[in-house]
Amino acid sequence: MSTSELSITKRRLLGGIAIAAVGLALTACSDAEDKAASAEPNPAVSNETTASTTSAQIPTADRDVDMEEALKPGPLKEMALGDPNAPVKVIEYMSMTCPHCAHFHENTFEAIKTKYVDTGKVYFVLREFPFPQDTASLAAFMLARCTTEDKYFPFVSMFLKQQRTWAAPSDGDVRNAMLQLSKMGGFTQETFDACLTNAQLAGDVSAVRDRGAQEFGVQSTPTFLINGKAYSGDMSVDSMSALFDSML
C-alpha cells in the first residue's frame, strides 16, 4: 500500500466509514505472511527447543533487547497487570486480528496470569501492534482504549475470543459486527462513533506500533519482550512456564 493510499484509508477510518470495507480474510500475523495461512493458529510459529532438565519446551529467543528502554511508557498509558517490581517483566505486542494472538490469549494467558502475574512473579504489559493496512485491528484497539482502564483487558479478551465474528463476518459488514460486540462491552452507537473518529487516539495507537517496530524490532505478532530477550510466536502454558521458571 502506498503512502497516499494509507493516508486515504486512515481518513476513511476516522470518518467512521472504512471499517465496513475491510476484507473478509483475517489479517496475517506479519506483513509477509500469506493471509490464507492465518486462518488457523500454527504451533510452528513458535521457535521452541526442549529443555535439558524438563520435558517442557522453552522458546528460543530471537534477539536481545534493551529491556530498560522497552519498559519506558510510550504515547499512551501503559496497560499492564501485576507488580512492576516483579522479577520477570513481559511486554506483549499483539494484533486484534491475529489468530495466533487470539490462540495465546484463549489458551495460555489466563493460566499464566493466575500462576505468575497474580502471585507477584510476573509484570505483564500489553501493547498494540495493528499492522499499517489493518484498519479493523486499529479500530478494535481504539475501542478498547475508549473503555475504562479496568475494562481494557476484559474488552480485549472479548474481542479476541469473538475474533471471527467481527473480523470476518459472514455478511462482510465488519463495522456493524464490531458495533454489536462493542455494545456488549458498554458502548452505544454514539460512543462507538465518537471513539472511532478520535484522530488523536488513532495516531497514538499507531505510534505504539511504530515504536515497537523501529526501536525493538517487532515485525510479527505476537512478539514477547521478556527480561531483555525477544520471542516471536504463540506459546503454550508449559513452554511459557518453563521460560519463566528458568528466570525465577
Rank of each mutant, 00 (worst) to 15 (best):
M1G: 05
S2V: 05
S4T: 15
E5P: 00
K10L: 15
G15L: 11
I19M: 14
A20Q: 14
A21L: 09
V22K: 02
G23C: 04
L24I: 01
A25H: 10
T27G: 12
C29M: 08
C29S: 13
A36S: 15
A44T: 13
A44G: 07
S46K: 08
S46A: 13
E48C: 08
T50Q: 15
T53G: 13
T53V: 09
S55R: 07
A56W: 11
P59V: 08
T60K: 12
A61F: 03
R63T: 11
D64E: 15
V65P: 00
M67N: 07
P73V: 00
P75K: 05
E78L: 08
M79A: 11
M79H: 06
L81G: 02
L81T: 05
G82V: 12
D83P: 04
D83N: 15
A86W: 09
P87I: 10
V88W: 00
V88H: 00
V90F: 02
E92I: 06
E92G: 06
S95N: 05
P99S: 15
H103T: 09
H105K: 13
E106F: 09
E106C: 06
N107A: 14
N107K: 11
A111C: 02
K113N: 12
K113S: 11
T114I: 14
K115R: 09
V122E: 01
V122K: 02
P130C: 05
F131Y: 09
F131W: 10
Q133D: 14
D134I: 01
L138H: 13
R145N: 07
R145K: 13
T147R: 13
D150N: 02
K151N: 14
V156F: 05
K161H: 06
K161Y: 05
Q163F: 00
Q163M: 10
R164L: 07
D171N: 08
D173S: 00
V174T: 10
N176P: 01
L179E: 07
G186T: 07
E190G: 05
A194M: 06
L196A: 09
A199P: 03
L201D: 07
G203I: 09
V208K: 01
R209L: 06
R209A: 11
D210W: 01
D210K: 13
R211L: 15
T221D: 04
T223S: 12
F224I: 01
A230H: 00
Y231C: 10
G233I: 01
M235T: 06
A242H: 01
